[in-house]
Simulated scan of single mutants.
Amino acid sequence: MNLNLEGKRALVTGSSAGLGKATAKMLAAEGAAVVIHGRDKDRTEHVAAGIRRAGGTATTVLGDLATDEGAAAVAQAATTDGPVDILVNNAGFYRHLTWAEASPTEWAEAYNVNVVSGVRMIRHLVPAMRERGWGRVVTIGGGLASQPMNTHPQYNATLAARHNLAVSLARDLKGTGVTSNVVSPGAILVEATKEFVTAIGPARGWGETWEEVQPNAVEALIPNDRGRFGKPDEIAAAVAYLCSDYAEYVSGATIRVDGGLIRSAF
């Protein structure tokens, strides 16, 4: 299937690793010119270089979206070679804390990085999409938005806010040719997930090796119809679809990519 992304320019925030990296690579493979964003120059350039070696088009921007000045600089740099048609708000911040550990300061920091940073990029880039009559905004959310765990409450709440703002934006974009949607991943096997699960596995009796730990971790933490962790490319594919002309009739939607996750207890 040709997603018709040739001639489109996409900024994927937080794309120097993880889901953002996978998303940028897939959009580039579908013909979009991608802007790789990160805060570490070497990691960001490495992703862009890999895309170019594969025949895609990629440039880089560096900056901290958690400040007004940083976000403005990223938006300006991202549009140097042309307007941004696709904004994937992926960048986010996670810290595993208990309710007792999650101070008001932690809550405020998480909200600023995970919610307001995306709002900053929307405010900088979406007005021009409106003027051109075409655009795609995809927010990466998560299942914890609707099925929060008892831990890291500050993070759970920011995911709910991300889902909410994306739908509100879709309503505001009515009739403009610009859509706003959410991709809601389950537990995806990026390196950080593997490290976390491996670290807590032995103490919970899941085993010592990854081969032992993984099936027990899935059953204990993310019981789902597919019986496994998700893959980054499965999230990237959902994003790519929402960016395409095939999703022109999809706005204000949340696409769950979680294996049919049913979380009933923790």
Results as ranks from 00 to 15, higher is better:
N114V: 12
W210I: 05
N114K: 13
L65W: 04
A265P: 00
L189G: 11
L87R: 01
S264F: 09
T57S: 13
V138L: 02
G260A: 04
E195L: 09
N2L: 01
I200F: 03
H152G: 02
G201L: 00
A236D: 05
W134K: 04
E234G: 03
S103P: 09
C243Y: 05
W206K: 08
G63R: 09
T254K: 08
I188D: 06
G205I: 02
A22S: 14
G207C: 08
W107H: 12
N224Y: 06
R204P: 04
T23K: 10
G82L: 15
G38D: 03
L189Q: 11
A128C: 12
A247R: 03
R263A: 12
Q154Y: 04
A32M: 10
G186K: 05
A66Q: 03
M149K: 14
L261Y: 14
T98Q: 11
Y249F: 14
V137W: 02
V178G: 13
A166H: 03
P83W: 07
V12H: 04
G50N: 11
L261G: 05
R226T: 12
A236N: 02
A24D: 14
V116N: 13
L5E: 00
V197S: 10
D40K: 05
G205M: 10
P148H: 09
H152P: 07
R136D: 07
Y111E: 07
E109A: 15
G14I: 02
V47K: 04
N2D: 05
D233I: 08
G82P: 15
T57Y: 06
A102S: 15
I262W: 13
D85V: 12
N89R: 06
M1A: 10
R120E: 06
A72I: 05
D85C: 01
A100D: 13
E101S: 10
A265F: 08
R171W: 09
H37T: 04
P127K: 01
P223Q: 10
K174F: 02
K231Y: 08
T254P: 00
V84E: 07
V250Q: 09
H163F: 08
P202S: 11
N156Q: 06
P232Y: 12
G135V: 06
R53C: 01
I122T: 06
Q147C: 10
G143P: 00
H96M: 14
G38Q: 06
S184A: 15
G186C: 11
T209W: 05
L189D: 11
G20W: 12
N90R: 13
E131R: 09
A166G: 01
A217W: 15
G186L: 10
E208M: 03
K194G: 04
L169P: 04
V126I: 05
A192H: 02
G18W: 10
H37Y: 00
R228Q: 10
A24P: 06
G143Y: 14
Y246E: 11
K21I: 12
I36K: 03
V137K: 02
G135F: 04
V115I: 15
P223R: 13
E6M: 05
L173W: 01
R53Y: 08
A253C: 11
G186P: 06
E208A: 07
Y249G: 01
T13S: 09
L62R: 11
H96G: 08
